[in-house]
Write a protein that binds this DNA or RNA. Structure first.
Lengths: 115, 115
DNA sequence: CTGGTTGTTCGATAACCATCGAAGTTTGAC
DNA sequence: GTCAAACTTCGATGGTTATCGAACAACCAG
């Protein structure tokens, strides 16, 4: 059986995405960095994003952020084995909010390694 | 003399605008409605925005929201007489975040009169 | 100068949010 | 079966935010 039984996050259909919610999800610098990483590197698993994007937080906090991004419709998750792979819902975002995610990804600052 | 002496809001230059701050400013549904109104109707004074955009809040709360939008760089204010006229900083926003504000304005839902 | 219009500032309050550590669940490897 | 790896969930905590009413300041019209 796939998936954590307890993972009951609802990812909205493209037509049900709410702009304020999407903007709020992207307004956090750490979440923005995560989204940008996934946008550039394609499907990634959690630890990969956290480590390579150098997000300064614990796994539980990152899990929380991922949930917010999924509930807004920005990211989607696919479970394979013990890992959860995350992808940007680019097609759906483009359909619902044309040009939005491209302009945000383009405008996001280049990742700075955090020491 | 122009301006409220006590109004010490700092509106950032285009190059100093921060994406997360802009997104956070636009993530609030009421602020988004206000921005959308100004984007469509051009320079407007406060009471005009509040009434015609039918924002369900007091003047003091609206003043607070306007401050956040100005501090993010989304709006600018011009004082004339007793009134404060507000404008979208479209040129600066386009220069700093190409395509962003257009996609947000285009995606924002049509204003629904609140009863 | 006296009101009335226009908007800001100041507390105060309640709701929300990011963060952590600890404990739990699922999976894969041995 | 046992153990580690990979996340998630829970409860707590501290910081931020939206909101209001009251008081204030600048301006305009008599």
């Amino acid at each position: 059986m796939l998936g954590y039984v307890t993972d009951d996050v609802v990812e909205p259909a493209a037509e049900d995405m709410q702009l304020p919610r999407v903007l709020a999800a992207l307004a956090d610098p750490n979440r923005l960095a995560a989204v940008r990483f996934v946008a550039h590197n394609g499907e990634s698993w959690c630890a990969q994003v956290m480590e390579q994007a150098m997000l300064p937080m614990t796994k539980s906090t990152f899990s929380h952020h991922l949930r917010i991004l999924r509930e807004a419709g920005v990211l989607t998750k696919r479970i394979q084995g013990a890992r959860g792979y995350t992808t940007l819902r680019k097609q759906d975002l483009d359909a619902r909010f044309p040009g939005l995610i491209d302009s945000i990804i383009a405008a996001a600052p280049v990742l700075q390694p955090r020491v």
